[in-house]
């Protein structure tokens, strides 16, 4: 993009995303969300579309290491950004510890929300390690401890229609505890 004048503005454009470590340049209708670019253009269907309005968290991905809702972002806003999807979190035979924990704890039923849950949990662990507070943090100046109320609050942006919440909590606690 990089155009600064209305006269130069266009409705399509090349967008470069660094997806799971690989730079991909796409020719997109500017209306394309980051979610649709990942799923429809790049074929990375691990990231799910639930509500498409930022209410369910199924589309959670990491952009430059930070978890966001891919449905409420345009791909063009992320030109040059590094995007990590569930496909980049782990691979068969080389699963991320959270993926192992979700399997061990049976932290799903239908599995539709799971990629978003796991990407969100990856973001949660990074945020907690950086000392970011949450609504469950009573003392904003004390170090962060990932207690169960903290994990629940920090996962509140991810809904599970099958209500596997207790097992999701168990899985994240396993990994958070191991890293503490």
């Amino acid at each position: 993009m990089g155009q600064n004048h209305l006269t130069d503005a266009i409705q399509r454009g090349p967008v470069t995303l660094v997806v799971n470590g690989e730079a991909r340049t796409l020719d997109l209708d500017l209306r394309t969300t980051l979610l649709d670019a990942l799923r429809e253009t790049l074929g990375l269907t691990g990231t799910k579309k639930g509500c498409d309005h930022g209410q369910c968290g199924a589309c959670t991905v990491l952009v430059n290491g930070v978890r966001i809702n891919a449905c409420l972002s345009l791909a063009v806003m992320h030109d040059g950004d590094a995007v990590t999807t569930i496909e980049g979190i782990g691979r068969p035979g080389a699963l991320h510890p959270l993926q192992v924990a979700f399997l061990d704890r049976d932290a799903f039923q239908c599995g539709y929300c799971t990629p978003g849950q796991i990407c969100s949990a990856v973001g949660l662990l990074a945020e907690a390690a950086a000392g970011a507070p949450s609504q469950a943090t009573a003392d904003l100046t004390a170090p962060i401890a990932l207690t169960d109320p903290e994990i629940r609050e920090r996962m509140s942006g991810n809904l599970c229609r099958c209500s596997a919440y207790p097992q999701i909590l168990d899985a994240i606690r396993d990994v958070a505890g191991a890293g503490a």
Binding site: L72, S134, G157
Partner: peptide
């Protein structure tokens, strides 16, 4: 440390993913 009312208000809004954006 100095404006906890603002931190608490922000953390009461939306979800972590939305607050990150």
């Amino acid at each position: 440390a100095r404006y906890p009312v603002l931190a608490h208000a922000l953390l009461a809004g939306a979800s972590p993913q939305l607050r990150n954006k």
